[in-house]
Amino acid sequence: MKSYGYYPGCSVKSSSKSYEKSLLLVMKSVGAKLKEIDDWNCCGATAYFGTDEKMAKAIASRNLSLAEQQKMDDLIIPCTGCYLTLKKSQEHLKEHKDDNIRAALDEAGLKGGDKVALRHPIDVLYNDFGVEQIKSLVKKPLKGWKIASYYGCQLVRPYSDVDHPYYPHILDDLMVSCGAEAVDYPYKTRCCGGALTGTVEDVGLRLVYILLAEMRNRGANCVVTMCPLCHFNLDVYQSKVIKKFGDEYEKSFSKKFEPLPILHFTQVIGLAMGYKYSELGIKEVMVEPKALLKAI
């Protein structure tokens, strides 16, 4: 058993609970023990940086200090938005040993925070446990699953130490180890629209359309994501996208724009490991992969 700290973030506690459910099961299977940070707070996301950058870094850094106070060496962060925000704040702490943020943190009893290693679950699964171990745990190989792995932006950019910022492969490798076929396409790290689907909807929906159309055209019958916001945009807005761009798609490619099942990557690994549909919260995604299930 290897122990890890765990920073869930707000999304997996509200609209993406199934991501957390499946993550915890997969981590348990490989032998990773997760301990949630006691009293963690919201990372502030991208919004806080747009209004007050120092406050944003301070508020995010509180979590890093708490993690170290609670004796965590590695911190698993499933949301790539949180991942980037915490990473950016930690870079600041590393570079500024005596500025106002540091002083204010110390004053509030929040020492340290610059040492804890920040990790996305994909990094932990791939680098600490490895493709071979995942493969050895597969009970139901995903036969017939043609998976487009979607990485999104914040995990590989700008801190691209996990994978390549434009041509990543680790999620594809994990999917292959589960018995699925990896679909290659050029937009693996193209923006999903982020918060734009909520703020400037026309632009946001167009970005989601570009991704879904490309994945479809390359032959994918399923999509996996590694970020609750990417998942939300592709999954929840898919019906709106089809309504808006369905005709355009039909005209351009002379076929119907069929909806794709969009799953959290841990749900797919969990299925291959033999966990039940309901345990993994797959009922909570908008387009369920019912036809694909029959194949395994």
């Binding site: 707000c10 506690k13 509200s14 609209s15 993406s16 609970k17 009293d39 963690w40 707070n41 120092k54 406050m55 301070a58 508020i59 509180r62 106002n100 943020i101 002083a103 204010a104 943190l105 004053e107 509030a108 009893g109 929040l110 009922k283 909570e284 995604v285 908008m286």
Partner: peptide
Amino acid sequence: KRRLHIGMEKIKNTKQIKKLLSGLKKR
């Protein structure tokens, strides 16, 4: 899909965040 979360969460130590932010503002 049972994904609408209406509740409002709150951390235990809100005082610490207050202290952190007001301390930073003062500096």
